[in-house]
Amino acid sequence: MSRAIAITCSGVSKRFALVDQGSAWRLAFSAHSGVPVFEALKNINFEVPKGQFVGFLGRNGAGKSTLLRTIGGVYSADGGQIAIKGKLSGLYELGLVGNPQLTGRQYAERLLTIHGEVRRRQQEMIADIHEFSELGDRFEDPVFTYSAGMSARLFFSTATAGSYDVYLLDEVLAVGDQHFQAKCWRRLRDRVSRGASGVLVTHDWAAIVKMCETAHVIDRGQIIFSGPAANASRYHLYGEDAKETFEPGIARFVARPEDPMTARPGQDLVIRAEAEIMQPANVGAVAVIERLQPGFGWETELMSREITPVGQKPGRYMVEVRVPHLPIERGSYQISLHLVMPDPKLPGRRVALDGFSWLNGDGLRLEVEDPLNREGLTLPVRWKVACA
């Protein structure tokens, strides 16, 4: 079953002319030959599934903001194709519309007009912006008199006042005080719960892990890494060293479990894989089931309380981790499965020998399906209404 896609970027590129005193005349008379150019984006390819945010991490000058503006139509792409399904709201570098002489109210009116909101609806939305931003009487003052925190409150409040299908957000969750950041997360969670999609570009890797299931690392205009958000964050911070470390040469998986796995609430889930023990050791297996809650981050749903024994002598073994009466609701999850052994130096600690994990980008997908199509849990209660 194919998934709905909110944003598609295929081979997108963007170039800027490097204008100096000599090249300015050539550009003025449409003589582009010989004018040096800077390639800000090179062959960018990615998709944003409907109902998800996809993150982009990168250093200053990597091309994050240029990519967001190109997706939003502020810049025209020099190559490739961009497709967006739904109504769009963009927040580029905290307020790339208008001039600082505008008051907060005028700024909001201008951005809503750009978004195509009719005047009848604008008044209701401006009242919401005024209340959400907590600017009070300063809402009528020029934007250039605002502090950075006040500007952040105005820009975010305006960009998210309406219920849009697609949001493009640049660095917005890394500014403002903790109180306002909490309000931002609540509003974004509300929008995502209604099926909104978007792209978040930021230096704040924690925001990427909290909001996105998938993320990309961009450098010099090119995507250099794509994968689970946590893995992309580790790559952004540590480069090629961003991988789990395993104790080598003791035990390893020799066959990947079924992927994706499917299960139903209340039924047994069995995770099977083949492993090889190369050196004598007390090898066991542990599994963790996790789920991304947009706006909250990755949450552990289930974790093995006890180690499932695998073997102690060299040879091949079938690993079988069983979760009886699967006590989770329908949805998409990630399973991490590891071979472990007791740490000979620290009692009670486990040493990881090998594994599949979303941190490494090779986690196991789990789809929990409910044939009755129930939302959440249903209590066995009967109601009876009698007339007095």
Rank of each mutant, 00 (worst) to 15 (best):
W383C: 09
D165L: 06
W205D: 10
A352I: 04
N282S: 12
R15H: 14
Q122L: 03
G198W: 01
L68W: 04
A275P: 05
R220V: 07
I307L: 03
L88N: 07
P36K: 10
A215H: 01
R350L: 15
L346P: 02
P344G: 05
D20R: 07
R105E: 13
C184D: 06
S336W: 06
R69W: 10
Q52I: 08
L96K: 12
L168D: 04
G162R: 13
M150P: 15
A206N: 09
D165R: 10
P309S: 04
S332Q: 14
I223A: 01
N45K: 08
E124V: 09
A6Y: 06
F16N: 12
P347C: 05
A285D: 02
A182L: 09
P309C: 04
V192Q: 11
E47G: 07
W358E: 13
T245W: 04
G98P: 02
F38M: 11
W383I: 14
N360W: 02
G95R: 07
L292G: 04
R350D: 10
G95V: 05
G11E: 12
E117P: 00
P265D: 02
V323H: 05
C9F: 05
V201A: 05
L346M: 13
D20G: 11
C212A: 01
P142W: 01
V48F: 13
R234P: 00
I289Q: 08
R374D: 03
P49N: 12
G195R: 12
A275Q: 06
L188D: 09
C387P: 05
V319I: 07
V209F: 00
V192M: 06
N60K: 09
I129K: 05
R316V: 11
S76Q: 14
D259P: 07
A31T: 08
K210N: 11
G95T: 07
V254P: 04
A206E: 09
G61K: 09
I84W: 02
T308A: 08
H115Y: 15
K210D: 04
R272F: 00
G227N: 01
G116H: 08
E276M: 13
K210W: 01
P142S: 03
K345M: 14
